[in-house]
Design a protein around this nucleic acid. Structure first.
Lengths: 281, 281
DNA sequence: CGTTGATTTGAATATCCTCAACGTGCGTGG
DNA sequence: CCACGCACGTTGAGGATATTCAAATCAACG
């Protein structure tokens, strides 16, 4: 179920390499494929290998920066800032001057349209980096909003960039994070494009479960801090439909919901089985 | 209709700057927004400003490379290769050693899952760059398949990277292209997540129309080289539904379809009006 | 000119949206 | 601490939209 996909393994292997160019990497003739199960772009990708407890006192990249000797000495990382529920970390279109490592709490990133339409692109929890998707553009590509009282650590983008230019290891890690968000976006296109409601929700729950597990929290029971409407937007459904799907999964004995936000995964296998039900387009 | 969005203008402005760091860029306090209309990530983004005819004899980045003095002298660009219909330019998960500039023909990029599910992520025509979305990961993130007899120009990734490290202008252009594919993916999430069938198809048609216009071809009449099934996968619909939607748009007097693949846009305003019909989630 | 694969069309069904009513939990302020 | 208001969540019923399976039609190509 939660085995790494070939492309993930490849990515992991990749980001461990230190030098900028190594001539003899085996290009596996095998056609690697992405699996549809959740976790295709798991948190684990953030850091090649060690850093198992980076989520505790410091967020991932901070730990990386420390190891790389790129923090404090170079003034890259700054103090953490606090945000209340609903407050925005940054806004679409603004010049990207900082990226953020989430220290505590949870955020959503949402794409806003001029016509009022909006789309939740993803959710971020402690340990995640946000803002990196706009690093190449040097512009924030979406809004990032706190879903509860949260804390994030500012990282100066320019300093990070110049540090990355010198430290190939750091550069690779940043690139790996950017690749991760690219992968996630593309994978979500598959979810929206070829799964139906129940599958999407099951996928979402398993994905969240895995992310919490990586954080050292329970993968069996966790709290969803986002509203049904947010989940709906993320999954391309209406909040009423999401609600109905929750109860359907509950009646099917796959999950149990207590006090609206607390989710318990009863039958992980059954949930995963939902994902292979329809072949898609 | 086809005015640039704030974020696009910002991007354009951005990629024209030569130096790596410029301290005093105005960070507009205005909350920039994305519009839902097609063309959010148009071809025009590929090159900041000049290079209006780059699509003719040379593809975009080639022209850029020439101007930057990064081609031939450095051996970055290589000869074009030919592909027949259905042939793959590269495969998911393979180590990224080259990126490609499409010289002629058209391609689709498709995400493949282990369970057989697959999702068309986008279509690419003459002048587009493909493979750059995996540049950060140094892995191809999806398959790219020729939809007709096509021609693409190989660009050595490692040489390109090292050239980019020296030429900040080139680096910015590459980053702009990567940002473009990120933007496109995120925008497509919005399309799949918050539009219904007719809107999606209208959006797709207007997007293609604009892309052909940028190529100097007619934006009013053009050929769609992909199958209904491909369009369906791209838009999260079944091919039958796509077919029905085509005839519906035709009966509504918005488009005209001849010989299955030739599309004429009759009422551009009407098509665009479809996009603002539903508010979304 | 016939074969083949893609497309269109039809009919029945499933899924999801929509509107509306109601329930629940949370925080505020008395 | 309790009552209240309010946002969020759930549930129901009906309708719109999209899927599914099947059959017929069309266009391209040898």
């Amino acid at each position: 179920m939660h085995t790494r996909t070939p492309i993930e393994l490849e990515l992991q292997r990749h980001v461990r390499l230190d030098t900028a160019d190594q001539g003899t990497r085996a290009s596996s003739g095998v056609v690697n494929t992405l699996r549809s199960a959740p976790g295709t772009t798991s948190h684990r990708l953030n850091h090649g290998d060690p850093c198992d407890q980076c989520f505790q006192s410091r967020s991932c990249l901070q730990a990386v920066l420390l190891r790389e000797g790129s923090m404090d000495r170079r003034g890259v990382a700054r103090a953490a800032i606090r945000l209340g529920k609903g407050q925005r970390l940054f806004a679409t279109g603004r010049t990207l001057d900082r990226v953020y490592a989430i220290r505590a709490g949870s955020f959503k990133s949402v794409l806003r349209c001029a016509d009022g339409r909006q789309q939740v692109l993803g959710f971020h929890v402690s340990g995640d980096m946000v803002g990196l998707d706009g690093f190449a553009a040097q512009l924030y590509l979406c809004d990032v909003v706190a879903m509860e009282a949260s804390e994030a650590c500012e990282i100066d983008a320019r300093a990070l960039e110049s540090a990355a230019r010198e430290h190939s290891m750091l550069r690779r890690r940043i690139q790996s994070l950017i690749a991760q968000s690219m992968l996630r976006a593309q994978h979500n296109l598959l979810v929206l494009g070829s799964m139906q409601g129940a599958e999407r929700l099951a996928h979402f729950l398993l994905d969240m479960s895995e992310r919490y597990q990586v954080l050292g929290l329970s993968s069996r029971e966790f709290a969803l801090r986002m509203t049904r409407k947010d989940i709906g937007s993320y999954l391309g459904l209406y909040s009423e439909t999401v609600s109905r799907l929750f109860t359907r999964l509950e009646h099917a004995g796959l999950i149990q919901v207590t006090r609206r936000h607390r989710v318990q995964i009863i039958d992980r296998i059954g949930l995963a089985a939902l994902l292979s039900s329809s072949a898609g387009h």
